[in-house]
């Protein structure tokens, strides 16, 4: 297991570097230049000066200098003042990408993790209700709500929540960031689709487990329905949920763009989308670096957890032993 983790960790820089090169190629293809404004362009000589300033006149030179600066090689060689410097944002030259990420990542991470926790609580409860008594009215009700939760886009739920909770009832502040009360509504809105999905995963997993032979044996030995479910079915039924949690956490932490925009939360997702629209190459590459690293690491964590929950899974060998 340790060898596996070490090997997988060693792959991280490789994966991330490949993702960065692909990102760079894609964003380079967007026409225009990050410094120009909507609707007007400066005289051609100034446009050339702008391009030269950020080495936008030569992709190879740009990528080379970027790799040296970000990897720390440039620092070792004495070209750069600092290692791991993602450079200034091209559209917001007063800020370094490091500063923007340092400020935005905790915000997105807080909302994302909070949303996943809320989703786990709501999703598990709803899944248990349905899974223990499949076909009951409670099952029908929770699964219908879950279906709505999956189907409704965040901007609809978010806007509705804003109108009712913030503007009409004035329970929470409308927009911004600065106190826990600002975070509550974005977290809840972001959690809903995840909660719905978790409840459906658990409900079907549990319902299936309840019909297995070992469960029937457990019931025959005198355990009540809920005791049997709690001791023998739940752990297996949670497996799909567990494998979903990894990507879901990553998605919640990186994909909260819509929620961040609706609630004016200064998170990374919003910065990322605006970076792409404005062709802010350094900002987009910096955020992709964070996202890619996070995805790879989270997937590794899930794999390890998986092996821990289900000993039949042998990560190192890749073969599955029966047990």
């Amino acid at each position: 297991m340790t060898t596996l983790v070490v090997r997988r960790l060693l792959q991280v820089p490789l994966v991330v570097a490949s993702v960065l090169v692909i990102t760079f190629a894609l964003i380079w293809l967007i026409p225009g230049n990050p410094m120009e404004q909507e609707g007007r362009r400066p005289p051609p000589e100034i446009e050339r000066a702008m391009a030269a300033q950020y080495q936008l006149d030569s992709p190879a030179a740009f990528l080379g200098a970027y790799a040296a600066r970000v990897s720390g090689v440039g620092w070792v060689l004495g070209w750069n003042d600092r290692p791991f410097d993602l450079g200034p944002s091209m559209r917001h030259p007063d800020w370094t990408v490091n500063e923007i990420i340092a400020a935005g990542f905790p915000v997105s991470a807080t909302i994302g993790l909070g949303a996943i926790l809320i989703a786990l609580v709501i999703g598990t409860l709803a899944g248990l209700v349905g899974g223990l008594r499949p076909g009951s009215w409670a099952d029908g009700a929770t699964q219908s709500v879950a279906l709505v939760g999956i189907s409704l886009p965040s901007f609809v739920v978010g806007s509705l929540a804003l109108v009712l909770v913030c503007a009409k009832w004035r329970l929470l502040p409308v927009a911004g960031w600065g106190s826990p009360s600002h975070a509550i509504l974005p977290m809840i809105v972001l959690s809903l689709p995840f909660a719905a999905y978790i409840s459906r995963l658990l409900r079907f997993g549990l319902a299936e487990q309840m019909t297995t032979d070992h469960l029937r044996t457990a019931r025959a030995k005198g355990l009540s329905r809920s005791q049997a479910a709690w001791r023998h079915a739940l752990k297996n039924a949670l497996l799909p949920v567990l494998s979903y949690i990894g990507p879901a956490t990553a998605a919640a932490m990186t994909g909260s763009f819509v929620v961040e925009k609706v609630f004016a939360v200064p998170g990374l997702g919003r910065h990322f989308v605006e970076g792409v629209l404005g062709k802010d190459i350094t900002l987009v590459m910096g955020i992709v670096l964070v996202y890619a690293t996070m995805l790879v690491v989270l997937n590794l964590v899930v794999d390890v957890l998986y092996a821990w929950v289900d000993p039949r899974i042998d990560l190192a060998g890749g073969a599955t032993t029966t047990g």
Binding site: S159, L162, V163, C166, A167, R170, P173, V174, A175, G176, K261, V262, F263, A264, R270, E274
Partner: peptide, 18 residues
């Protein structure tokens, strides 16, 4: 100065007194 980019949110923030 608050940078609220969502146009509807800005109106709601105004309506709520923020």
């Amino acid at each position: 100065i608050l940078p609220i980019e969502d146009a509807n949110t800005a109106v709601l923030a105004y309506e709520s007194g923020a």
